[in-house]
Design a protein around this nucleic acid. Structure first.
Lengths: 343, 343
DNA sequence: ACGGGGCAATGAAACGTTTCATATCGTCAA
DNA sequence: TTGACGATATGAAACGTTTCATTGCCCCGT
């Protein structure tokens, strides 16, 4: 156990505690000879700063936390990467917390983060709406930036992607491909993104098509398979000819299940996913998907957070909304006639 | 800023500081009436424990850290999940650090973790071998458990999967399918797992086949695509008929590139991956892969760590090695004749 | 009536920093 | 020669806990 304290360094170097601290924090205030003597002592003793003590004195830590719904989800992996880049640049540290879509875990994490007096938190809450725990957190003074959530909260920043637009893009594309019976797969509907993507799709369809909703308990491959089973078992003339999924994981599940049931994609069922994760292009049938600027989301969120942390007084809360982009691949375009237009 | 301290709670409740602390830590020592009064004060003031102060006093934190090569890699995501489960059960907290295969980042993380006096660290170091920074870390007394690394380190615990066996299983399977020219794709070769998987494959092949190594700079889909391009461009009679990849990400990249170049999998080229990530089964051609008990790896690593933390004196370092398992899917079995044997 | 024992609550010390007001000393200008 | 100033170094206070030795009190047995 590294139990060497600044005190022993001071004794070893024959200076006072304050001087050692100065060497550590404002080296230019210390005479070169003394400074070197202290540095040597530090090296010799293997001294390591005690961050608890430092923070206790400082009143605040240097870390920012990001609480994600699922570390395993590539979407969040990219958001995290973006956040790390930005934080690193500002000399901060990022800790990643995984709520696993579980309210209780999220709650536990927030408790701990608050006890740790983190600088601020980037979070995608498990449930949207006025989460009392999060409100409390904010009201006690820890800056929070909502990631991919955040309709109408005016006392905090948020970054998001226009999910309604994303849904609209997907549905418009399917409509254009001639589909009239379309299924929307995803859930729980209480998640704003899911609701928005659905709303966008419904809006794009208008009276030109029929949108059948299959709600899933979560956005996973397994959930997608299950939902696909449900759809596949409908009588052929009622069965949707296209499926728009709230998520690529779900879409991959749907694709997998459809293939397994000998329904061809896209000929029997077209599929459009959401997120354009790395695997979308590598799927059994390359997956059309709505792409979000994931890393950018993390970067911007971190910038907003750091701005709030530093500019206490002047800071104005902002809501940054990015535009998604539809990436068309084989899963939603007729297989036979080779498409001539390039990538 | 939650600047309420135990002192104000004490004043508000009309008791001493010590009593408040007792309510927090040993509630049974406090008379029910007093306890309630204190709890009310805590609620009314929105008091939140200051973890820095607590740790400063305790000398140690309750968190354990896990340093992974890439949060985006589903392999690590599962290891993390396993670690979290186990830690949670023991009342601990897990923070996830992402080294991104970058020595400098890993170094930075270790610095910070040491300053934070974490209980211990689970780590897959960027480079194997006697990393001086990690040695130093350990020698100063922070317990470390190596994850998926750790040949012959006797002064620390490790968990790993027998990668030589994994390589052997994969190659033996391909041999059995009639392949004689096989490629091994992965890298950098300095990573022990990569080297072991290669060694296992080479051993299984012996003189019965030819193993061509295509080294990649990293274990990513992109690297796989690039390597596959190299392989695909070989004259047909030199070209390997099967590819064994050090990693599923690489394998998916290979699959993608081969498909794009109109080489059929498995007919023209068979593929076996490694890790059996969730997407392996959902790939364009369901991917044969070597499965590792990922979550178990995380759980066991955490157990070993906690054992070392708690049983300071008695603790004996252990090296737990798990056995991988080959999961055969379509990417390595002749497509036409339907296989009759079940899952 | 007195002492002992148990339960509750208290107060002070200690954890390792950082910061800030102060002390020391040599030097330079007047 | 003196006074002041700049450059260094010092010591003590403060951050918010936890812990532990003490105190205060009440009740019970003798």
């Amino acid at each position: 156990m590294s139990t060497t304290s600044i005190k022993e360094v001071a004794r070893h170097a024959g200076v006072s505690i304050g001087t050692v601290s100065n060497v550590l924090n404002r080296p230019d205030l210390v005479a070169p000879a003394t400074r070197q003597r202290v540095l040597d002592a530090i090296g010799a003793l293997g001294y390591v700063r005690n961050d608890s003590a430092r923070q206790l004195r400082a009143g605040r830590s240097r870390t920012i936390a990001i609480v994600v719904l699922d570390v395993a989800n590539p979407f969040f992996a990219d958001v995290v990467r973006g956040a790390e880049m930005e934080a690193e640049q500002a000399g901060g540290v990022v800790v990643v917390c995984n709520s696993g879509e579980d309210r209780a875990r999220e709650h536990r994490h927030l408790d701990i983060l608050e006890e740790q007096r983190v600088q601020g938190v980037l979070i995608t809450p498990v449930d949207d709406g006025p989460d009392s725990r999060l409100e409390q957190f904010i009201s006690r003074g820890t800056p929070v930036v909502l990631v991919d959530r955040g309709s109408g909260h005016h006392h905090r920043c948020s970054v998001a992607v226009d999910d309604v637009l994303g849904g609209r893009l997907a549905a418009a594309h399917l409509l254009e491909q001639g589909h009239r019976r379309i299924a929307f797969v995803g859930g729980p509907a209480s998640i704003r993104q899911v609701a928005d993507r659905h709303a966008g799709a419904a809006a794009a369809l208008g009276t030109n098509g029929e949108l059948r909703v299959v709600e899933t308990p979560s956005l996973t491959v397994a959930a997608g398979r299950h939902a696909a089973g449900e759809i596949a078992e409908l009588p052929a003339r009622q069965r949707p000819t296209a499926v728009f999924c709230a998520n690529d994981l779900v879409a991959l599940g749907v694709l997998q299940e459809m293939t397994q049931r000998d329904l061809r994609v896209p000929d029997d069922v077209a599929i459009v996913g959401y997120d354009d994760i790395e695997f979308a292009a590598a799927a059994a049938v390359p997956l059309s998907s709505v792409r979000q600027p994931r890393e950018q989301l993390g970067r911007t969120a971190t910038q907003l957070l750091l701005d709030e942390v530093n500019d206490q007084g002047r800071h104005r809360h902002r809501h940054v909304v990015f535009q998604p982009e539809l990436v068309v691949r084989a899963s939603s375009t007729p297989a036979r006639p080779p498409v001539s237009k390039g990538a």
